[in-house]
Amino acid sequence: MSRTFTLDDLKRILLEGSGAPDGADLDGDILDTEFTDIGYDSLALLETTSRVEREYGIELDESLVGDASTPRALLDAVSAHLQAQPA
C-alpha cells in the first residue's frame, strides 16, 4: 500500500511539532521557500522528520533530510521513500 505525503500533511506536522513561527504564513506559496525563511530552524526540521518517520512508519536518511531545505524538497524526499516501499 502506497501512502502519499502532501503539503497539507507537512504543514500539519510542522504546526504540531514546532508551532507557527511569528509572522509565518503557511497558507501562502511556501513550496520553494527555505525553511529558515519560513521561520523553522534545524531543530524544528529534526522534530518534523522524526514525526514523519513515526507517523508513516519509515526511516529517512539523515543526509537526504539535511539536504531538504524547502518544503518541496522534503515532500519529494518523503514521497520517493514512500513510493519505493514494497506493497
Score class of each variant (00 low, 15 high):
V52M: 01
P71E: 00
S42Q: 04
S69Q: 15
L26Q: 00
D8A: 03
L14F: 02
L74N: 09
G23R: 01
Y56S: 10
L64R: 05
D76T: 04
D27W: 03
A68H: 09
I58A: 08
Q83W: 14
R3L: 05
L82G: 05
M1L: 12
D9S: 12
G66K: 07
P86V: 05
L64P: 14
M1I: 11
L45G: 11
L82W: 04
A80Q: 14
D22N: 03
T36P: 06
L10A: 02
S50Q: 08
H81E: 12
D29C: 13
M1Y: 10
T70D: 02
A20N: 06
E59G: 09
P86Y: 10
A87C: 13
T33H: 06
P71Y: 01
D32F: 09
D37H: 11
L60V: 11
D9I: 08
G57E: 09
Y56V: 03
T36I: 03
S69K: 14
A20T: 05
F5N: 03
G57P: 00
L46G: 15
D22F: 03
D76N: 12
S63I: 15
L82E: 01
E59P: 06
T49E: 04
D76Y: 04
A20R: 07
E55D: 13
Q83N: 14
L74W: 01
S2Y: 11
T49P: 08
L14N: 00
E16A: 09
L43M: 13
I58Q: 06
D41E: 05
L82N: 03
A44C: 09
L31D: 12
L75C: 11
T6D: 03
A73D: 11
D22L: 03
A68M: 09
A87E: 11
D67E: 14
T70Y: 01
Q83P: 15
R12C: 09
P71Q: 01
T6E: 04
S18Q: 08
G19K: 08
E34A: 14
G23D: 00
L45M: 07
F35D: 02
L46V: 15
E47K: 01
L82P: 06
S2E: 10
S42K: 01
L64K: 04
